[in-house]
Design a protein around this nucleic acid. Sequence first.
DNA 1: GTGGCTGCAAAGCTTTTGCATGTTC
DNA 2: GAACATGCAAAAGCTTTGCAGCCAC
Lengths: 154, 154
Amino acid sequence: MGGGAISQRIAEFPKRCRAAGLKVTPQRMAVYSMLIATDRHPCPDDVYTAIRSDIPAISLATVYKILDLFQERGFVRRVSTEGQVARYDAMLDPHHHLVCSSCGRIQDLMGGEFPPLQLTLPAEFDFQATGIEIQFHGQCGACSRQHKPARAAD
Amino acid sequence: MGGGAISQRIAEFPKRCRAAGLKVTPQRMAVYSMLIATDRHPCPDDVYTAIRSDIPAISLATVYKILDLFQERGFVRRVSTEGQVARYDAMLDPHHHLVCSSCGRIQDLMGGEFPPLQLTLPAEFDFQATGIEIQFHGQCGACSRQHKPARAAD
DNA sequence: GTGGCTGCAAAGCTTTTGCATGTTC
DNA sequence: GAACATGCAAAAGCTTTGCAGCCAC
């Protein structure tokens, strides 16, 4: 996605907030702008740290509340991880994830670049699927060249 | 998997432990037996609770240590979840998961029942994939019939 | 007998909650 | 001005750690 598309999403965000019955605050704009501009799938503390340069007085609890709210409203999604910290993603176009077991980095795999799976499951499973999440586990190029052991760093 | 296959895996487990340089203890046998016999993807506390009927004196910290060790040795795998509790799975044959957004239940989708994805990614991604994890999100049959809202219970 | 394992208790993190103050509409 | 959002601090999980005693080999 180009930078133009990002700034457009940021520009449209106040409208989306009001449409969802949410007030527009500098804190919420900062959280959304940070998330939409990165492909690093940050955890709440990453967001908090990044935002403090803009809004020094922001509190970590507020970041948690905002992320919860955004996820509830469907503005961001929470990525499934094995670890114990939540990671968020504002990229909502269909895509999958490449999870590096060595450095923990989560890389995007856009839907257009790899055939997406169909959502319709055989009726025998008695399950109404609304979304699919695919994670490839392994080593990213940088880590495999360094022969890093799994979970060396995060 | 039939009950026979389960008891066989339990019977072979002491051998696997020793081969991996681990001592065989009642606690470890209980954890493994519990995990291999269920399809509920329990969290550490579930394991702890279930095992206390066999080994009343077992400590939760020990359960955590054992699960960590088993995962390190490849005896079990840790399932990626959005929540903040770890969930484990002793079923290591290729399979995917159906995650119910209402009740949180994780159902298995065996590899043979649904075409598995190939692991080879186009070279341009510079990623060495060793495993794939697919989660279908949605509502299980029971919850969709009850018109439960998402995350009503866990 | 020895090394590794367990159980207990305490500490460490992440996340949530309550409430007074401040802001948006 | 009213309703909602924020910030602070405290509490509530979940998970890890340190260490003395115990057990498998």
